[in-house]
């Protein structure tokens, strides 16, 4: 095994066992992901029935309808929010994951579980707890008012939305980063310290590159699902700026326009697949470079 071989180091040539291991996932993906997506793709060209069903047939009208400033504006705003959330979650997630990964081995699982416990309480119950905390009867506002500041309720506000998105998505950022970081040989850090590398250098040259796959997962797991969020913008943001998730839910439920909802979903799906594929390509090149770099360190 050496870096000069064209294949990634440590990867064994395909064998029956390798494909066998992929079978269960293949079954899930084909039956429960690809088939449903084909159903949606089909529906996006169907004619909608005002009663809420779909009449079949073939039309491009649904896609034509989407070329409307209303949808473009919402899509743009959603992408911005998703990007912001992905960056915030990944940065905070990295800090927390690093903290956990550098604790005593016996303490690490305890800390991981501590990260996850708050999420055993229901999402809505947590969200309402935030509303109580940030609302005008809550401790923050009361404290500010006691200090003589004329503070208004923090709900609804953009800040409240950002905070609760971070809250909702933090574990999916922490876990993959932690999983990747844990396997980093701790002696690398000592070596870096011995060589006089500062904090930034140690992270930029060792921890970030070696946990790149975890960071990439974190970005993906926080960016993409933000687009489907629909409760938070309404409850903490006042619902005046809907995310694309709100629109899709509205199309499927209140508007009972499954074909239009399907068309919007296809657009989101294709946008996301393209950006994931793009990010994957970038990352693969980056990872290859970093891997050899990590080995050198």
């Amino acid at each position: 095994m050496n870096a000069s071989s064209s294949a990634r180091p440590g990867r064994i040539a395909p064998s029956a066992a390798g494909y066998l291991m992929l079978l269960p996932a293949l079954a899930v993906i084909v039956l429960l992901v690809i088939v449903p997506m084909l159903v949606i793709a089909r529906d996006s060209f169907a004619i909608s029935d005002p009663l809420g069903g779909n009449l079949g047939g073939f039309t491009l009208a649904n896609y034509e309808k989407l070329i409307d400033p209303v949808y473009l504006k919402t899509l743009g705003y959603s992408l911005g929010m998703a990007l912001l959330n992905a960056v915030v979650c990944t940065v905070v997630g990295y800090i927390v994951a690093y903290y956990i990964a550098t604790r005593r081995a016996s303490l690490q699982p305890v800390l991981l579980v501590l990260v996850i416990i708050p999420f055993l309480t229901d999402f809505l119950v947590r969200t309402f707890a935030w509303i109580t905390l940030l609302g005008s009867g809550g401790p923050f506002i009361s404290l500010l008012r006691a200090l003589g500041v004329d503070a208004q309720s923090l709900v609804p506000s953009q800040l409240a939305v950002t905070l609760s998105l971070l809250y909702a998505f933090l574990p999916v950022a922490v876990f993959p980063i932690y999983a990747a970081m844990r396997s980093i040989d701790p002696s690398l850090k000592e070596a870096a310290a011995d060589l006089g590398a500062g904090w930034w250098q140690t992270h930029a040259r060792i921890f970030v590159p070696l946990s790149a796959s975890g960071l990439a997962s974190s970005v993906m797991l926080t960016f993409v699902p933000t687009l489907g969020v629909f409760v938070i913008p309404v409850l903490l943001g006042g619902g005046k700026d809907p995310l694309v998730g709100n629109l899709i839910v509205t199309l499927f439920t209140e508007f009972r326009n499954e074909p239009l909802g399907a068309a919007l979903s296809m657009v989101v799906l294709i946008l996301m697949l393209a950006s994931v594929a793009g990010a994957g390509l970038l990352l693969r090149n980056g990872a290859r470079r970093n891997r050899s770099l990590g080995k050198d360190a």
């Binding site: 309402f128 509303i131 309404v234 409850l235 943001g237 619902g239 005046k240």
Partner: peptide, 12 residues
């Protein structure tokens, strides 16, 4: 002039 749309905790 709206504060927002809300079907859940408007009473609070």
């Amino acid at each position: 002039i709206l504060g927002g749309y809300n079907s859940t905790n408007y009473a609070d």
